[in-house]
Amino acid sequence: VSVSATRQSEQQLRSELLHVYHQIISMLTQASINRIFERRKNFDLRRLLFGSEKVLDGLLDVMDSDPSFMLSAVQCLPLPSSSRDALSHILQKAVTPNLVFSFLIASNRLVSVVQEKTVLEDARLKPSDLHLLCNLIRASSAFQAGEIWTPICLPLFNHDCYFYAYVAYLDPPECTVCLVLLSTDKEAFYAVAECKRKIEEAFASQNALQWVANTQFYYVDDIGVANLKHFLYKPSKVLDHHRQLPQFTCPEMEVAYRSQEERIHLLDLYRNMHNRIQSTSRPLKLIYHSTGKETLLAWVTSKFEIFTCFTPLVTKKSAISELTKLLRWIKKEEDRLFICHLPKYSITYRPTHKLLFHFHVLYGKFCGL
């Protein structure tokens, strides 16, 4: 059951409930829950969820102020493409049998992701799975204590099986840059830890952590668009990588939206626009909406969707003109704002595992159920 004081639609509230459900699945797997209730229909699942309250509470809190969930996309750390490619290359070189994904996350934003190339297209990584993984790491201080090896299910990737996640921060005690390595082998801790050691050595030799530490976040004043206060931009079909892993970008919040209440207020306005744009009964392509404090313009095309917030007295004609300037700036900065391709690597599986390059065989064998 979901009760909200915001202007969210029923569909949006259902989506949030689904994220909570998937977070529970990420800790237990669908197969194990089904098996439990087949044996005991009156089983109290809270017994298995004891201790996970911070994870679920954290998810509810972040959904209030993070547009990632509404847009079904991930936000990347702004980084020069040459630096991002170099970081990805380091991750590609540090692999071991049965390693499937390697993530580098900084300030709760995705820096780089590489994957084993035999991962099939119909089982590709979904933004929701990354949201749940990041929330799990963010909600528990235990991950800052050292190397953690824990089972985790990615529900939209495969809701019946566990991955085994190796999580370690690369910059203690600040703990802002996090390495996450996902394996299908529950006995692979030491092999995966060796991958982390190689990554740390390569980072140290190239001073790579400084590239992340020196990241230049951007504000609306850096863009040079008159009367702009904030925006959300999600490319749809500009390049193939956006279909592989949907992404979005937005500037850092200015003074007017720095408090939690103001951030929620702005996101509430975006949610209302998003709901009207995505309406199944009467979908819209362009919405101009003025309030007492701001003017909003939402525009959806086959190539992108954008939600903009301007000062209150901007006319529709002026807002569209300024939005065109914003789109030109985003296009120019695209390589810095987005991951432009998903690097892949190839590894040789241990012969004793008798693995075939097929999703159900590859992951079903290691579900641990």
Rank of each mutant, 00 (worst) to 15 (best):
D44Y: 11
S9W: 04
S26A: 15
R7E: 13
R35V: 01
F43R: 03
F43C: 04
I33V: 15
L18R: 14
Q30E: 07
D44V: 10
D44P: 05
Q8C: 02
Y21R: 15
T29D: 01
S15D: 09
F43K: 01
H22V: 01
F50L: 13
Y21I: 02
E38Q: 13
S9M: 06
A5F: 05
K41D: 04
F37Y: 15
T6G: 08
L13N: 03
L49N: 04
Q30I: 00
H22K: 14
L13E: 07
R14T: 06
H22G: 00
R7T: 11
A5H: 10
S26P: 03
Y21W: 08
R35L: 09
Q8S: 05
V3E: 03
R46N: 15
F43G: 02
R47D: 08
F43T: 03
I25E: 01
D44C: 11
Q12M: 07
L48W: 12
A31F: 04
I24H: 01
L28T: 05
E38D: 12
F50M: 11
L45N: 07
Q30F: 03
A5G: 13
S2V: 14
A31K: 13
L45W: 09
H22M: 11
H22L: 12
N34F: 06
T6P: 00
F50R: 11
L18F: 10
S9F: 03
R46S: 14
L18S: 13
Q12K: 02
R7Y: 04
V3A: 07
H22Y: 13
N42K: 10
T29V: 06
D44Q: 11
R47T: 13
V3N: 04
Q23W: 02
Q11G: 02
R7S: 14
R46Y: 13
R40S: 12
Q11R: 15
Q11N: 08
S26T: 05
K41C: 07
I25K: 00
R7C: 09
S26Y: 05
N42H: 07
L17H: 02
I24T: 06
L13K: 03
R7D: 12
Y21T: 07
I24R: 05
R7A: 12
L48E: 08
L13Y: 00
T6M: 08
R7N: 15
E38G: 07
I36Y: 00
E16L: 08
L18K: 14
S26W: 05
S15W: 10
L17R: 04
R39M: 08
V3R: 04
